[in-house]
Amino acid sequence: MEFSICIDISKCTACRACQVACKSWNKLKAEQTENKGSHENPPDLSANSWNRIVFMETRLLNGAIDWSFFNDRCHHCEDAPCMYAADSVPGAIITDDTGAVIYTEKTSQLDYDSILSECPFDIPRLDEKTNRIYKCNMCIDRITNGLKPACVTACSTSTLNFGTKKDMLKLAYDRIKALGRDANLYPGEEYNTFWVLPENQDRYPITKKEQNKPYRIARKTFLKQLSKKLIGYAMPV
């Protein structure tokens, strides 16, 4: 069963329960941080911080304030470039029926820089002590046991939602319709974590690098995509 997380940014209050819940379930250590003139912390994703709320505030020309929150985390690409970049170490980066992209202990055998450079969203982080690479694993241990990811469970405003990809896409498009105007799906359907953005993407502190770089798609990915297009969007059971 392919699952997805749908993040409805229109409902996010930036309470950051998702950050704490992630650390709590995954037993991730805290970091010694400083206030650098923002409520945003920790300052970046790390081996111990797999999701975080990023803030962006601007005063518009008409005097109105635009204060946006974005929950940054792994997008769980259906065809994860990082996975293909990790071909040399079988089992280091894997995906399964759930749609989650999983980094195993074998990531310590990978070249971190090449994995990072393949990620369009600047997500994977290295634990320099163990050389292992970490990022959100969609709480694979929870979702394969009938639970929702820890962050989704902790979210009180229904910003974070978890379910089958079909249901989550429906939820996303229903919300986009309800919000109207510039509301859009980010980054797209080919991901298993996607965002409902009420405004244009440039209004959010989204990290995207080398957006113009053409996707380097492996042959089997191409075939997979092609087959999907041919048979339509069938849900694996």
Binding site: R16, Q19, V20, A30, E31, Q32, T33, E34, N41
Partner: peptide, 12 residues
């Protein structure tokens, strides 16, 4: 509580 201190580490 380390996770909370990480989020709001001090006086501003």
């Amino acid at each position: 509580q380390p996770w909370l201190v990480e989020l709001e580490p001090g006086m501003f």
